[in-house]
Nucleic acid binder design. Structure first.
Lengths: 167, 167
DNA sequence: CAACTTATATCACCTCGTTATGTATCTGTC
DNA sequence: GACAGATACATAACGAGGTGATATAAGTTG
């Protein structure tokens, strides 16, 4: 089932079609790992960015998550209503909104990670040792892969995203 | 950055929390790989199931995708409107709706796979050889992992899902 | 100061998911 | 063989999360 694809390899001699299909299935598994009431993927990802990189302009946040600015305005409003983040003013530029994670936000993020780690751990016990090892070995590659999308850089502290003029 | 997690291992000596976080980021990448107008993840996954396993009851389809029956009714209606699938009657039981992929559905699925494979291939060229190898090596494990969720079995032909009484 | 440009908000709209409920059809029992 | 309950699907009302188009306020620049 891994061998009969018509697109067995590209210029790099790599079965990109096969990988893409597998990643689709994996993404569905990740989505199905959500329990009702739990923070959604986008919500958690946004909170994680705020946790890692500190306060962030709303527009930058939107770019990093790969969503439009109106979508981020809404998301931030929901986060604010539930007390997980807050809006702050930028004294340098009164147009901007700096979004900041709250203590409750950090707690919610930690709890989500705990719960999902636990749920995933249960699934992982169903795999054999070699499969788990293969997954572990792939983590750095996955990490590298997820850093490739524009504006998704985890932003090392001190380098506040050099915004490369997107208009 | 892979070593400082507080949940470094569970009973299997495996950093499930770290893996869960990585999978979250990977899932967001997969979602961002979608271009506007393209088939969504659930839509594509449902069509893929129909393509693999042949006509299927609406309720079974819902269980396999891990969504509720009303959600599947809606999805099938959208698929039918766009001509990618169709409803058929079951002569044995006039309550059931058998959902069947159409030729157009197969074509749309193939086109989506082609386009996404291409997009992913571009990203993969940014990885080094060792990273690509690690990803390839992890594919069987990912395949095994995605088969673990209830009702998600790809249903080998001839065994029409023995529906294990879910009420 | 007028004219852009930029940052955010707001609006109308779509998709995709949920619960709760309705309707038609089967099934088992008296 | 009719009635009670279970089952398969549809419908309705809603929320979250996304889109593009557009308004508003605040910097920036000639």
């Amino acid at each position: 089932m891994l061998m009969n694809s018509p697109d067995a390899s590209d210029s790099t001699g790599f079965p990109a079609g096969e990988v893409a299909r597998m990643l689709d299935r994996l993404a569905r598994l990740v989505l199905r790992l959500n329990t009702p009431g739990e923070l959604s993927l986008t919500t958690a990802s946004t909170l994680a960015t705020l946790d890692r990189s500190g306060p962030c302009r709303l527009t930058d946040l939107a770019a990093r998550q790969g969503v439009t600015q109106p979508a981020m305005t809404q998301l931030v409003s929901r986060l604010q209503e539930s007390g997980l983040a807050e809006r702050a003013a930028d004294p340098q530029d009164r147009r901007v909104v700096l979004v900041r994670i709250t203590a409750a936000g950090r707690a919610a993020l930690a709890e989500r990670r705990r719960a999902r780690g636990e749920r995933l751990a249960v699934l992982l016990t169903e795999l054999d040792e070699a499969e788990r090892a293969a997954l572990t070995a792939a983590l750095p590659a996955i990490d590298a892969l997820t850093r490739l999308l524009p504006d998704d850089a985890p932003a090392s502290p001190g380098v506040p995203v050099p915004e490369p003029s997107r208009h």
